[in-house]
């Protein structure tokens, strides 16, 4: 099961080779998330409207390897924007993927840009 995780590696802005045009901004709930498919990857994308920011991360929760994070609730933990997994409420920083309430492996995060009301996710491959 763990091999799923290898599909996802945190991507820094400077390593972005492909800006994948994912969907219209309107397809994502305000202050919530939805999932997009890129090749064999499932990516959770969050419209953090209160911060006027967008975030993207792997959809798979490292706790039980289920594809659920996009259905999690977002919010902040002492200022750090986070997502809570809908299954057991493990929380992860949307900034760097760190597990904020446990010692799970960090999740992979991806850069997001918005152009002409479209959401683009940055991948290095």
């Amino acid at each position: 099961m763990e091999e799923i995780l290898e599909t996802y590696t945190a991507t820094e802005l400077e390593h972005v080779k492909v800006w994948f045009k994912a969907a219209s901004t309107k397809d994502f709930p305000v202050d919530g998330g939805a999932c997009i498919k890129y090749k064999d990857k499932q990516i959770a994308v969050f419209n953090f409207a209160r911060l006027d920011k967008w975030y993207a991360c792997q959809n798979v929760c490292p706790h039980k390897m289920e594809m659920v994070l996009s259905r999690g609730m977002i919010g902040d933990d002492k200022g750090t924007p986070k997502v809570a997994c809908p299954l057991h409420k493990k929380t992860f920083s949307l900034e760097n993927g760190e597990n904020l309430n446990g010692d799970l492996e960090a999740i992979a995060t991806y850069p997001v840009k918005i152009e002409n009301d479209f959401v683009y996710i940055g991948f290095s491959e």
Partner: peptide, 16 residues
């Protein structure tokens, strides 16, 4: 109804 799809950019279901 829009909220009940696994992907916003695809009709596919969770392949996992």
């Amino acid at each position: 109804m829009k909220r009940f799809s696994h992907f916003v950019n695809s009709e596919e279901e969770d392949d996992n």
